[in-house]
Amino acid sequence: MIYESNCKKIGLICTSLDNMAGGLERQIIRTCQSIESLGYTVVLFSYDNEDAQSFYPIPSTIKWEKCGCGLKPHSSASKLKRFKQLRYLRERVKKNSISHLITFHHGLFPRTFVACLFLGVKLIVSERNALSNYNYISLPKFNSGYLSLFLSHKITVQLKTYISDYPKQLRNKIVVIPNFIKDPLPEYIAPNIESKNIAMMGRLCAQKNFRPLLDQLSERENEFEGLKVYIAGEGSEREEFEDKYSKLIHNSKLVLLGNIANIDQFLMQSAIFCFPSLWEGYPNSLVEAIRLGLPILTSKRMSRLNEFVENGVNGLIVDDRDLLDSTIYLLKNPDLLRKMSFESYKKYQVLCLQAPQGKWAEVLKSRQ
């Protein structure tokens, strides 16, 4: 063992933070801050290059190690270049005397495992997605990332319902740790129910599944006067969105806001939060919406997220083909929207009773 058993230096690693404004980025910074408040020294690792800039501020007490070595995050590389990158990561882990290294999602874990081989570092995989994502991506489930989970010391998942997705041989390693979330509002303040604004939030990518509602609106844009869709987020599909939905954009039925800093202000201007994702882990944008009391419209794929959304209570859970019809139904029933709004607010109060910091403390103290 290279490190002392009482070493209190914790590393967290993700692919990239460079101008990334998603829920994962907000969450990794909150996790760093919370672990630091337990008395640990925290180092944040990423495969960014030196010119990378975090969209969200990283506290000055948390060291950010950029281990890109000239390679572009989220891209392929030759074996030689990847080896040099992992060797550099290994050197940074050793130099910082890291005792526990938390990898944000299993797809990245094989690199972490190789870089830390024989260093005696406790390796923790913090899952960021439900394994249902394999139903929607081309990568087969039994890939190197998934199989490498057997080499981890601990696995954290965000919801109890996700445990059954894993083989029985792995379940003794799994700890349920929900995401860190903001403090609740001191009192209920209704969002802009009368606005007819529909908010969606997330990267412009296939996973977030914004297209069904936009396709339906394109075909029936004049059916309900005043309805507008606002999307906060940036991504690889922006040009496709601008081309395919150019008429909606021109007619001010669709507004692509890009990355935004003030999420609360954006959400409070809306009547409904639409959440049609193909898959999620812990639904950060959904949680931020219910904190502000937004009624929720989501897909039946999210039906097991009942601690966030209950059909007919604080929102509607529908098929993709019914997204626009359900939106119009809710907008035509403002009294129902107000009731659902307050129910969302109440749900958030319950979510705030969870204690992720204590769970992380237990994992980091574990000798297994």
Rank of each mutant, 00 (worst) to 15 (best):
Y3V: 15
S5C: 13
C7K: 09
C7Y: 07
K8I: 13
I10G: 02
L12M: 06
T15R: 12
L17G: 02
G22E: 01
L24V: 06
E25D: 02
R26Y: 07
R26S: 11
I28E: 04
I28T: 00
R30P: 01
L38P: 01
G39W: 04
V43M: 04
L44V: 03
L44D: 07
E50A: 05
D51S: 07
Q53I: 10
I58W: 06
W64D: 00
K66Q: 09
L71C: 05
S75Y: 09
S75L: 10
S78C: 08
S78I: 13
R82I: 13
R92V: 11
K94A: 10
N96L: 08
S97C: 14
V114M: 10
I124M: 09
S132L: 09
N133I: 10
Y136L: 06
S138T: 14
S144P: 10
L151W: 11
I155T: 04
V157Y: 04
Q158R: 12
Q169P: 11
R171H: 11
N172I: 05
K182A: 12
L185G: 03
I189S: 06
I193W: 00
I193P: 00
E194Y: 14
A199C: 15
M201K: 09
K208N: 12
E219N: 13
E223Y: 02
E225S: 14
L227A: 01
E237V: 08
E239W: 03
I249V: 09
L254R: 01
L257N: 04
N259S: 15
G281Q: 13
N284T: 14
L292K: 02
L292I: 11
N306L: 08
E307M: 12
G312E: 08
G312A: 06
N314A: 03
G315S: 10
L323H: 07
L323T: 05
L324P: 00
D325P: 05
L330H: 03
N333V: 00
K339H: 12
M340P: 00
M340W: 11
S341E: 06
F342K: 10
F342A: 06
E343S: 04
Q357T: 03
K359R: 13
L364A: 03
R367A: 05
